[in-house]
């Protein structure tokens, strides 16, 4: 299946993905509601977006007591708004931290791959996010381990 491949080296931390995502998810530019989120590494000098890996045995889906999470035609785990009651079991079941709760709507929300045209990938000016046929993978781990080392030395001791 096609997944969001993240090449953290290319990210410049401009957060445009968050704006585009929040617009697709909510109809307004509201990065607090983005389901892709950019993290800083290396004392602010590097950034990388992080989002749902669309894991095969989906913790969120199996946790839902009302079957409000299902699999979309493009393979995304998606929340059915009219079924979700907002109990948040999915948010503690997901070990990746990529399903969220919207206090305004009282619903869970997560990356739905924009039905196959992910807004984040389209918005990314540096192709740090691409929508490609690939195996899901820990895109950021090695990058972050290396990049964040500097941060460990400069700030943790403070």
């Amino acid at each position: 299946m096609k997944v969001l491949r993240i090449t953290p080296d290319r990210c410049t931390g401009c957060m445009r993905c968050e704006l585009a995502c929040s617009y697709m998810q909510t109809g307004t530019f509201q990065p607090a509601k983005s389901v892709i989120r950019v993290s800083p590494f290396e004392a602010y000098a590097s950034y990388a977006p992080y989002t749902c890996p669309q894991c095969a045995e989906a913790w969120c889906l199996t946790a839902c007591p009302v079957e409000a999470i299902t699999v979309s035609p493009v393979g995304a785990k998606v929340v059915l708004d009219d079924v979700c009651v907002g109990c948040k079991l999915c948010t503690i079941a997901c070990p990746y931290g990529t399903i969220f709760y919207n206090a305004e709507t009282g619903k869970a929300f997560k990356c739905n791959l924009c039905d196959g045209q992910p807004a984040c990938a389209e918005a990314c000016p540096t192709q740090a996010i691409e929508y490609v046929e690939a195996e899901t993978h820990d895109w950021l781990g090695a990058f972050a381990a290396e990049r964040a080392a500097r941060h460990l030395t400069t700030l943790a001791s403070a």
Partner: peptide, 12 residues
């Protein structure tokens, strides 16, 4: 939490 989570390779 996020930085440590990611850098520790938790996703993998």
């Amino acid at each position: 939490v996020k930085r440590a989570f990611i850098a520790a390779g938790t996703t993998a």
